[in-house]
Write a protein that binds this DNA or RNA. Sequence first.
DNA 1: AAGGATTTCAACCGCCGTGTT
DNA 2: GAACACGGCGGTTGAAATCCT
Length: 336
Amino acid sequence: MRKPDPCGGKNNVGANGAKLRKGLWSPEEDDKLTSYMLTSGQGCWSDVARNAGLQRCGKSCRLRWINYLRPDLKRGAFSPQEEELIVHLHSLLGNRSPLSLSLSPSLYSNVQTYALPMWSQIAARLPGRTDNEIKNFWNSTIKKRLKNSSFTPSPNTSDTSSEPRDVNGGIMPMHEQNIMATYMDGSSSSSSSMQAMALNHMIHPMPMLGHGLHIPIASGSYFYSPQVEVGGNGFYEGHGMFGGNVGVEGELFVPPLDIISIGENTKTENFVDRNTKNTSVSNMNSIINHCYNNKAENITGFGSYWGGDELRVEEWNLEELMRDVSFLPSLDFQVD
DNA sequence: AAGGATTTCAACCGCCGTGTT
DNA sequence: GAACACGGCGGTTGAAATCCT
């Protein structure tokens, strides 16, 4: 039987039997922790708490140091660039919040398999920012936009041919349309890049659990779908599918998550012809090749990752990534 | 100026994965 | 393999700060 976590449970008593403090940190405690960390460096956090003379559990010390006391932290409001990067990375990495889970809550257990340490991944790309800070920012600011936004259907309700559809050919559920509306609502980004982010958010596998989604692609449009999966080496790996100019009118089908395989050297077959239900790699490759041949010159920063080359999230060049948002725009969604 | 409503964010909680014994 | 310790994570809470009437 696992012992209760002295930090998390009600039994907040330290190793020496002393009652552990909770709540806000006093300046004196901050001083003790800071001076200890600067002189002795990080070790076992329980030892840090003990050796620094703090009546706190190790976990609490860790949190305080990482989120507040670390000398390399950047304080103050998020810049528009940071904000856009957060939105973009969130669209790439997805999350396992109720917002996403609401799209397919019954498959929560599958999410565990795919869940990324998302806020940390994002924080790792924003120097001086912490996962907690970003999470708070997302929950207080971005999510609010989502909540407040309302998707306005096209006045011509009889013509739904261009609206995003689900796997059964139905109109995209309102919550997914709201995702689009949210990104379209972004003030710091161009509407075109927000369109791309919205699409990307919607076709990210986690919201797609069990559903699958058809997205219409008009001739001449772009598509974009980074696919994140767990590689056998323990890293989260992505197979970015950065589409170019699609030469034929058709649909992008994002399959339900349960057909996506996981394991060492797995490949994600992420696009399926709606008519043939063909999920072959060659089918995807033909699209990729077509895109590559037509638009490769417009795509920078991903070079050799084309055609299904593996890339690790950790290796993305985000400056390039952000710059490349400009190539994403021309999605033929009718969001009027 | 007062006080209620809203927002922000530091900190906690509970769970999970991993390493060690 | 079981038990345990620890670190790390996302979700949540609640006090403080700010805004609004």
